[in-house]
Design a binder for these strands. Structure first.
Lengths: 185, 185
DNA sequence: CGTATACTGTACCGATCGGTACATTTTTTT
DNA sequence: AAAAAAATGTACCGATCGGTACAGTATACG
């Protein structure tokens, strides 16, 4: 494991596969090659601090690659296009789930409530902002943003259930298409 | 615990809250009031047989209350309306998650691949069938059905992440609305 | 160089894990 | 009532859980 960032993203993959409760320290030591000594040196609070770090990394990635472009791109529609491209890359064209969404579903959520909650609310508000800037009325923008974010989450669930990542990519296309097809007031 | 059915639905709630990996036998004995002796009498294969039973019960409920009405209602649009009502009731207006969707996200899926996979494919195909009967072209019906099922799953994720069940109910309304608003070929 | 600091491996902890064995109790059947 | 079957409580199993202690090693820095 080269650096801390690489370690944290490997931790993320482990949590994605097994869930938080389903991830054991022994799997972490096996997959990362790090002994408990090292692990607890980097994360004195153990498993939950590791998950915090992973969530923080995810947040930072989305801030940089999705939320800020959405809010600050000169052309709002360009920012939205960039979002779809970034999201498609991040979720590996439907082969990778959303860890935050997975955490949200069971009582893991309660342990990371702040992170889980703001991840989605930031996303929706950044996207609504871009839609508004692109000409939609505020209420319409808010509603569309919610629909898009939720559509992405649902597509990830369905894609995995069917072992068919194309469900995700075609959903992304449909959502993107609908923005273009909708009246820009 | 009156009967086996009541036991199985309590098991379902426990799995919903904790996930499969996060559910311990000790929590099950505490919540159901049944000792290990009884539990292993009813489910000789332990936790995974309990989950199988829960998934089977869910499937039976959806078959009866959703899939069959969708396929066999005299008026296809009535069947679809019934689906939305049944789904809203089942997911307790956004206060209850979809266990199958939750299982789909992590490696729990692999242990129940058949059940997870057919739950969604049955749902989509039954809904697509009703949409087709109501006048949509086959390809459109298939696409709409996928969009609706995935929208429901995404809404459950988002609602829980925000502790706001209204996200679910308003998504249901929007999806239902869109069927009416779309050209019936 | 020497010394402080960062990192790591190993042994160990009590608690809990899922599961088994089996005798006892309760219920059903005759 | 007697016998059979279903259901249950308890004690116990080895394995693994997350976490700690700490000595040892590597690395950075003066």
């Amino acid at each position: 494991m080269h650096d801390r960032d690489e370690l944290i993203s490997e931790l993320g993959e482990i949590f994605r596969e097994n869930g938080f409760a389903g991830t054991s320290l022994s799997e972490i030591t096996a997959r990362t090659g790090l002994g408990k000594g090292s692990l607890y040196h980097f994360f004195p609070n153990g498993k939950s601090e590791m998950a915090e770090a992973v969530l923080h990394n995810i947040d930072a990635w989305f801030q940089e690659n999705v939320f800020i472009p959405l809010r600050e791109s000169d052309d709002a529609l360009d920012g939205i296009d960039d979002m779809f491209a970034a999201v498609n890359a991040y979720f590996d064209s439907g082969n990778r789930i959303c860890l935050v969404g997975a955490f949200a579903l069971d009582n893991t959520r309660d342990q990371f409530l702040q992170e889980v909650s703001t991840y989605f609310s930031d996303w929706i508000s950044a996207l609504a902002n871009a839609l508004k800037r692109s000409g939609f009325a505020a209420a319409v923008a808010k509603s569309m943003a919610e629909e898009i974010v939720l559509g992405i989450q649902g597509a990830l669930v369905l894609a995995r259930s069917q072992e068919d990542p194309k469900i995700f990519t075609r959903t992304l296309k449909r959502l993107q298409q609908r923005i273009a097809a909708t009246d820009h007031a």
